[in-house]
């Protein structure tokens, strides 16, 4: 099938020459994502990737997480990534979670450095920006892209409200909410909407996007700000709502990985529901709607 570049209004339909037998109507391209949404989506992809990778470099400067107002409360850290070097210069990576110790050589605590030899570091160099331990530079990357991410996010929320993207495309209807159970079963069986229904997000998708946009992303930003000694003075003690500054740092880390989990599931769903169709719809805006199979 030749890709068609669709230029025109929302509802323009394009005949698909490759329509299979057994379909009652032709396939067509539907204008699914507006230009602002597409642009902001890809800015977010770049910003979140760099934020994660530079964040892991920053974490490596003190690879331990705590619960509470300070790191030195007399209680051990929740998570600790260490490297140990024995008498024969052999490097071992150790990860300690709630006091349970795991040998994680190769991934956490010790991994191959830029030169290919095993070095002690919390996260492997291919996962961090910059590749080596360089806190000052990692902070520059992180804080620059944090601004881009926040500005992009604010633009997105404003646009979504004004353009009714939020009300029209993201807010689930009552009927949809009552069908959550079926939607869960459908997802577990990798069954997805086709035809007209594929133009809209399904209810689990809507709820997931809403949780990411209005819970996880604001939380990761807020917990980042909670680590700022300047921002903490806005209302002295506000960070204690989240357990204190070190708890905020732990939440920041956990939410970052929840976002990674979201992205993995998101990309998985994109793959199984038609990689190129989804990718095209996020680049040109056009989504190919398969005509319904007649029964």
């Amino acid at each position: 099938m030749a890709l068609r570049i669709a230029i025109g209004s929302n509802q323009e339909k394009f005949m698909d020459q490759s329509s299979d037998a057994g379909r009652t109507a032709a396939n067509y391209l539907y204008y699914r994502h507006t230009l602002p949404v597409r642009v902001m989506h890809w800015i977010n992809v770049i910003a979140l990737t760099i934020l994660l990778m530079s964040g892991l470099n920053i974490f490596s400067a003190h690879p331990a997480l705590y619960w509470g107002k300070s790191s030195y409360t007399g209680r051990p850290p929740i998570l600790e990534i260490e490297s140990a070097t024995d008498a024969s210069d052999k490097v071992t990576g150790i990860t300690r979670i709630f006091g349970h110790e795991f040998i994680t050589t190769g991934v956490l605590g010790a991994s191959n450095g830029p030169n290919g030899n095993l070095v002690g570091r919390a996260f492997p160099s291919w996962l961090t920006i910059p590749d080596g331990r360089w806190l000052a530079m990692a902070r520059q990357w992180h804080l620059f892209f944090a601004w881009i991410f926040v500005i992009n996010g604010l633009c997105y929320v404003a646009y979504s409200i004004v353009s009714r993207h939020l009300a029209r495309d993201l807010a689930p209807t009552g009927t949809e909410l009552r069908s959550i159970r079926e939607s869960v079963v459908d997802h577990l069986h990798f069954r997805h909407h086709s035809g007209e229904a594929s133009k809209r997000y399904n209810v689990l998708q809507k709820l997931t996007y809403l949780i990411v946009i209005f819970v996880l992303l604001p939380l990761v930003i807020l917990m980042g700000l909670a680590m700022s000694p300047g921002f903490d003075t806005l209302w002295p003690g506000w960070v204690d709502i989240f357990g204190g500054r070190q708890s905020a740092r732990t939440i920041h880390f956990i939410v970052a990985w929840l976002l990674v989990a979201f992205v993995l599931i998101h990309v998985f769903e994109v793959l199984i529901t038609g990689l190129w169709n989804n990718l095209r719809s996020m680049i040109t805006g056009r989504y190919r709607v398969e005509a319904e199979v007649s029964k």
Binding site: A61, H62, R139, R245
Partner: peptide
């Protein structure tokens, strides 16, 4: 609050 990430009171 140390730039490395830890805090002490």
């Amino acid at each position: 609050d140390c730039v490395e990430g830890w805090s002490a009171i």
